[in-house]
Design a protein around this nucleic acid. Sequence first.
DNA 1: ATCACTATGTATAATTT
DNA 2: TAAATTATACATAGTGA
Lengths: 170, 170
Amino acid sequence: MVRTKIEMKKIESEDSRQVTFSKRRAGLFKKASELSILCGAEIAIVVFSPAGKAFSFGHPNVDSVVDSFLAGKPYKGANGNQHAVKKYSKVLDQLTTESKKSDAARKLRKTSLQNRQIPWWEGPIENLGFNELQLLLSSYNRLQQNVGIRSKEEMYNNYLRSMLNGNHNV
Amino acid sequence: MVRTKIEMKKIESEDSRQVTFSKRRAGLFKKASELSILCGAEIAIVVFSPAGKAFSFGHPNVDSVVDSFLAGKPYKGANGNQHAVKKYSKVLDQLTTESKKSDAARKLRKTSLQNRQIPWWEGPIENLGFNELQLLLSSYNRLQQNVGIRSKEEMYNNYLRSMLNGNHNV
DNA sequence: ATCACTATGTATAATTT
DNA sequence: TAAATTATACATAGTGA
């Protein structure tokens, strides 16, 4: 039983690779747990096994990190959630009552493309076109479907609360 | 220089906590790197320091995991990206040409709430109401603003490509 | 897929530079 | 404030049940 130093390259044997993955994943999550406890840090980890199976870790759970973003505290940008929702509501109205792609918005995006200075998702949400909104939502759904199981539960609970309180602006 | 076994509770001294955080974060990321190399695993980590500063790790980078979702391979659900976009386009048309909250969709959601069997985000996107779309998009934006810098660059590149190819369905 | 074992490699707490 | 040191605690490779 002589433990040898292993080389840092992909393990060839599929069985060994799977065993090592299980062990080291557990170790990694333990380290993450300790880090969060000792330092009061929020942490979220998503790992895909060689077989493509997803594992996640979070302290106290994965969605606590996501919720920090959703609540906009303490890591939010200049605009809070309410503001973002209002802005989206506004642009959605514009896009759909006028046309699916307003000329103004398209012109702004074209300028952005030419200069390659300001990516469209960095600018005001009012400038977003229909395709961009589609891209954002579809990619968000993809993330939620595959990763944020507990995050979705949290969203559900928040949604339930808002419904029960009669607050439909979330 | 006698290393003592430390107790697993939050470090009181703010300075020590910050030092420990930096060291252990580095160690955690190294472990994650080894896991990904040895086992060929995709991994993404997001950590918030006690001071609220965000750190991220990914192999080969954070967005590689996100991109797996965006591309729908190999972890996608039954519906690909094209399909999701079409579905969203459809529901958006309905919502805005009829009303911001269709009675049919509201009734479906109410049933879901009563039974508490199928959360609204698990069901068909056609059933989503205006508030749900707002919630989804605002939370996605929050995530992108704070975490996915490289992911956004990838989105930008993909968007550029689709524009150059004249493909506006992304 | 675990679980246990244990020799050895590795991370890191306390301290110094 | 950050790097280097080093003794010890901890993780884990190989193996077997």
